[in-house]
């Protein structure tokens, strides 16, 4: 994939059964873009988190919906858009307190946190005509994995 090419688009049913397919497609796209295998794995996990968020929260687990994945290579970064027509999140958490979540026996609430840890830029945008989009970007160069203690 080159930076001057049209974006690669994939339409996928918004179901958990498709998460492994999305993981593998993302991983391969990232490797084709020049990311090393471990970075490609991280990008694939982050995209899976966005897709899971759409399935469980935007579409509330209802069947019959779809997600459009769009890979937009740029010279400095790989941008991945996960477009859907479900509900937009009301509030994105600023951070997580794992100790509190564990004491409350919570099993969720980690997905957005993990996306932010693995990617350089994570936002959710509301587009025209009722569409919404998770936008994830991973820089091609630079250090990754900020100190987990910097956000709590």
């Amino acid at each position: 994939m080159g930076s001057d090419r049209a974006p690669l688009e994939i339409d996928v049913p918004a179901t958990c059964e498709c998460l492994s397919l999305v993981h593998e497609a993302t991983r391969r796209a990232a490797i084709a873009e020049g990311f090393d295998p471990s970075a490609a794995d991280e990008i694939a996990v982050a995209v899976g988190e966005a897709m899971t968020n759409v399935i469980e929260h935007a579409y509330r687990g209802e069947p019959g919906h779809a997600v459009r994945l769009r890979f937009r290579p740029a010279p400095e970064a790989l941008r991945i858009e996960i477009e859907h027509r479900g509900a937009a999140p009301e509030n994105l958490p600023a951070g997580v307190d794992l100790g509190r979540l564990a004491r409350e026996r919570r099993r969720g609430g980690l997905g957005v946190h993990l996306m932010r840890r693995l990617m350089d830029h994570v936002v959710h945008e509301e587009l025209a005509a009722g569409a919404c989009c998770w936008v994830l970007e991973r820089n091609r160069a630079g250090s990754r994995s900020p100190d987990p203690g910097s956000e709590s």
Binding site: V45, E49, T52, A102, R107, G108, G109, L114
Partner: peptide, 10 residues
């Protein structure tokens, strides 16, 4: 993915 870590956390 986070679901797996969430299972441990819970």
């Amino acid at each position: 993915a986070s679901a797996g870590f969430g299972a441990i956390m819970g």
